[in-house]
Design a protein around this nucleic acid. Structure first.
Lengths: 336, 336
DNA sequence: AAAAACCTTGAAAACGTTTTCGTAATCCGG
DNA sequence: CCGGATTACGAAAACGTTTTCAAGGTTTTT
């Protein structure tokens, strides 16, 4: 086992434990010569400090937690990438938790994090999180907390998001300008602020172009792919089917493609599609998929940076940062 | 802060610290009535045990580490998903580390893990890992270690892999049977066991069909996408260009698609492509991509399960498990 | 030459648990 | 009612660090 500790090291060196500890932490109290000796011996004996003893004593874990709905998802994978980059630079460890879009999981995960296991938490809510008591409670214990992308609607807290309203507006307007008269909206959740904003953009774009918002064209999708396929198939099989689809998340666009293949609907001739997406193969699809692409990697980086500012107390007292990044609309053939 | 600890709890209850601790851990030494009182008070005071004190004392972290080259990668994202599933069931925490295909990162990460921070490690090597001294060293400190997919060639250790040789063979033979005479192989690394095996399958399939292995058709790609695009473009622009591509990893197939679009090579008419891939949109590409699909999620699950068997010492003394799962070849239009 | 300042080290407490061991108090059969 | 078993709890050590404080020794100042 990992056996060499300060005690053994100090015995080997003929020094006290405290001196060895101080030498290793490069304290001014220790002479250069001694430090050199200690470092050499530590190297030789392959000393690795016990992180738990250290964390216990210093009340710091050098660890952050990332809580996300899923990982097999291009957006979140990229966000994690950005988070890890910053964490690695700071020398922090990253604990990852998946809620699988399940509120109970999110709740229990957050509760566990109250024990001091981490110095800060990055979180993107799950699709049916409405009650945020668990997060308020975590916040009250003093753990720095940053939300990214899927942020709570009614909580004063630091967030990193994108211009969801504008993106929803632009995407919808783009479809209208391409010729769509009946644009459907595929939504992920009833609760999430991001879907509210994206849908508000969608509705306002319709209104701007004198198109009435038709509730039948707004589909609340579920967390089950099979069900979603059925919902979309039903939508697209109607006589008065839409001629455009605005998908608020990537997987719903993918499902739409499958349904169109299935029922032989031509994209974009019979139905135009645009979607929020971080798919790297968007331009290789048949047809290439028009996307609103969120800067997922940057979102991760910004969130982590913000969190570390809070951890290091570099952020002003009770200042609450709300960072908003811009998504980019990329027109491709699915909306021509 | 997370302030309530055993001491406060015990004072509030008029019990000793040890009794409270034992009550919370449901020890037989404590009466049912007392346990009930303690549980109630712990709930009321929102007690969360300090994980570091506990880990320090018990010499267990209830945490595993996952070390992978990258996360924005369908294979690894799915594998992590499987790992997390098992870890969550076991009540373990998961620390994730990205090496970004950089050996130095891998080395230092592994070194840090020797301090006892985790009870076990799951790792997929990075593309240029040749020297495995750091892993031998970790293993020697007694930390259970399971390799998945990208495993070391010369080390006696538990692994979870797929039938890479057979898959490489089948994929290549499939291209030959589709009519290819000159099949190129896009490889990721010189060192990895998986690429060796996949390439051996490739070579043996060629030999079986009396096709000479042409070193000029075997391209060692790099870790830089731009460079890879150039390498592939050069390969496909030659007069004696190949009529088939066997890509050993997904991103090289994607790059090939881009190059073919760029230089107007028709897939599959002028060049057929098959690739290892976990792309969920493989069937939606233009043309749909033939794939060898690894059971990434299952690989994650199996690796984690194996690791936990080792952690729980349920695995026989020095028995070394080598689990091999089957990949599936899915023919689509890119190799018609 | 004594006093003050500095440099280097060590002893010990503390972080919050877990666990071993000891010990009252109760119980039960003979 | 006595001896042994059982039940329910507490005291204290231990895990491996970090940090405060004291102290011995050397150098500098007066």
């Amino acid at each position: 086992m990992s056996n060499t500790n300060l005690k053994k090291l100090s015995e080997e060196l003929g020094l006290s434990i405290s001196s060895v500890s101080k030498a290793l932490r490069d304290s001014y109290e220790i002479s250069a010569a001694t430090k050199k000796r200690v470092l050499a011996m530590a190297e030789k004996m392959n000393y690795q400090p016990n992180p738990f003893a250290s964390s216990l004593r210093r009340k710091k874990s050098i660890t952050i937690a990332v809580v996300i709905p899923e990982i097999a998802n291009n957006f979140f994978a990229l966000a994690i990438d950005g988070i890890q980059l910053v964490a690695q630079q700071k020398g922090y460890h990253v604990l990852t938790y998946l809620t699988h879009e399940n509120f109970k999981n999110e709740e229990s995960t957050i509760k566990h994090l109250q024990g001091g296991r981490v110095d800060g938490v990055l979180i993107s809510l799950c699709r049916d999180t409405d009650d945020i008591q668990h997060l308020v409670s975590l916040h009250e214990t003093g753990v720095p907390l940053v939300f990214f992308d899927r942020v709570p609607e009614r909580m004063e807290c630091p967030t990193v998001t994108t211009d969801d309203y504008e993106s929803g507006f632009k995407a919808t307007e783009h479809l209208i300008q391409a010729g769509c008269k009946k644009v459907a909206c595929l939504s992920l959740s009833n609760y999430l602020s991001i879907t509210h904003k994206r849908m508000k953009g969608y509705e306002d774009a319709l209104k701007k172009h004198q198109i009435k918002v038709d509730p039948k064209l707004i589909i609340q999708c579920t967390n089950d792919n099979g069900t979603n396929l059925q919902l979309i198939k039903k939508l697209l099989s109607r006589k008065d089917r839409p001629d455009g689809i605005f998908a608020t998340v990537e997987k719903l666009a993918i499902s739409s493609y499958y349904v169109c293949n299935d029922i032989k609907l031509k994209i974009p001739e019979q139905i135009r599609i645009i979607s929020f997406s971080n798919l790297r193969t968007a331009s290789l699809l048949a047809p290439s998929l028009s996307t609103i692409t969120q800067p997922a990697f940057e979102i991760g980086k910004e969130s982590a940076s913000l969190l570390f500012r809070m951890i290091e107390k570099k952020t002003f007292g009770n200042r609450i940062d709300k960072i908003v990044l811009k998504s980019s609309l990329v027109q491709r053939n699915s909306s021509k």
